[in-house]
Amino acid sequence: MKQEAAQHKLLLLALSSCFVIPVLLLFLQSIAGEWRFPHLLPSSFSYYGWESIFQDASLVSALWTTWSLTLTVILLNLLLAFPAAKQLAFSSFRGKEMIETVLFLPIFIPALALAMGLHLTLLRIGLASTFWGVVLIHMLPTLPYTIRIVRAGFERLGSQQESQAQTLGASQVHVFFHITLPQLLPSVRAAIFLVTVISLSQYALTTMIGGGEVVTLALLYFPFAESASTQVMAAFSILFALLPLTFLFLIEGLIRLCLPYRVSKI
């Protein structure tokens, strides 16, 4: 037992050094004034990196746009994926295979090719260069994954628990919030994280559909990478990496606040 515990600790240490040390180094880099080889630590510290990114007016607005865009994409993803995934998991109907294929096509066909065609349509209906146009285009590379993840969750859960709750007198809404959602939380967490990461990193799609009007962090990231110092880049990267975490904490907090059961026990 003791040996096993020691092994676990060693593994944990090895894993955390792989993940924690690079992040720590990145953080150090963002506040380093001068840091030259062969010094192990920076010889001076400065907040120049952080100051310069927050002084950039476009960054604050891009941060806000990215945040609201990603949140909208997450919510829309969950809203559409739950009913679709449930039907695909439990129902059998004519044309199911075809619908499944259509739903997963955006993963197989390059999103840019789809976006070219969609751009024309969005121009026609007046959604090009708007927030909602970008939201719509971000659904393309994210929704297939969300449906897949949530569907796997439903299949793991099975439909009998829902039937059981119904015969005990529960309504569909009650079943969803008390039985289904608490047990699908691992899938919801995975979907949120994946959607956030995919949506945040969309450069080409956002540029094409946003038309320069909708500026997200990804759009600012590349010019920064070319021109700014390593400090600024490090600070920007940390900011970029923190965004998915804020969504995760936000949703997790909401879930813990709203759900009546201790979700950690699931």
């Binding site: 039937s163 059961y261 026990k265 699931i266």
Partner: peptide, 12 residues
């Protein structure tokens, strides 16, 4: 109320 083959207790 219907009781199934599995007890179907809600695990959470």
């Amino acid at each position: 109320v219907l009781m199934f083959q599995d007890s179907l207790l809600f695990p959470h």
